[in-house]
Amino acid sequence: MLITALSLPEQVALTLSALILLSSFLMLAQTRIDSLINTFALQGVLLFFATVIIAFISGKYDLLISAFLTLALKVIFIPGQLRRLVVRLDIRREIEVIGKPSLIMLFAGGLVLFSYYVALPIRELSLLTTRNTIAISLAVVLIGMLIIISRRKAVAQVVGFMSMENGLFFAAVVSTFGMPMVVELGIAFDVLVAVFLFGVFFFQIRTEIGSLDTDRMNRLTEVEK
């Protein structure tokens, strides 16, 4: 199937999904905390536009509610909250050294291939709900996980976590045009509470452990030291 055979909105939607994946890679490589948060907000914006376009293509206008929920939560509220926390904790300019960045990038590339492989048994349903978009959403989830694994700073791990949530939302949008509204709201509520709890945790970690570096969380072991 050639991309030129699709209608213009569909082409835009596919391009946006490619950009969403790209923004995941950007986050993986971003070393400064504030740029990382900005990239996360950018992914939210892309997600918002993709959802709006898909809502118009499919004619399922209740998707627009989810789209604006995303805009409010993932573009405005969560990044804003994170920025505020980062300023209050005074770690805005901190730069995190990522060990073996090129290796991690290659691994992320591998994850994308893996996602495409996993999505193979999914039969094509319509032009939009292709293996392509489902594979991309899975890749975003897995790269989010990789961000959590490869980072040591608690804030970066939270951004990775939220980026996973983005991938899941995208999966729901492209595969089934969103979840039922009650579930959608439930998930949004969970995310909201999670952000709040993360904020509480930052301060707890800061006061008790002294730094937001999770490498220093090493006291719990299987055997007595």
Binding site: T176, Q204, I209
Partner: peptide, 28 residues
């Protein structure tokens, strides 16, 4: 306890996200 809480939060959060992906696939 903070270390345990953080570990619980991240591991269970990440794990349970996989279940949401599975749920989406069921819906699909």
């Amino acid at each position: 306890s903070i270390e345990a809480g953080w570990k619980y939060f991240i591991i269970c959060g990440v794990g349970i996200s996989q279940a949401l992906f599975g749920t989406i696939l069921v819906y699909f």
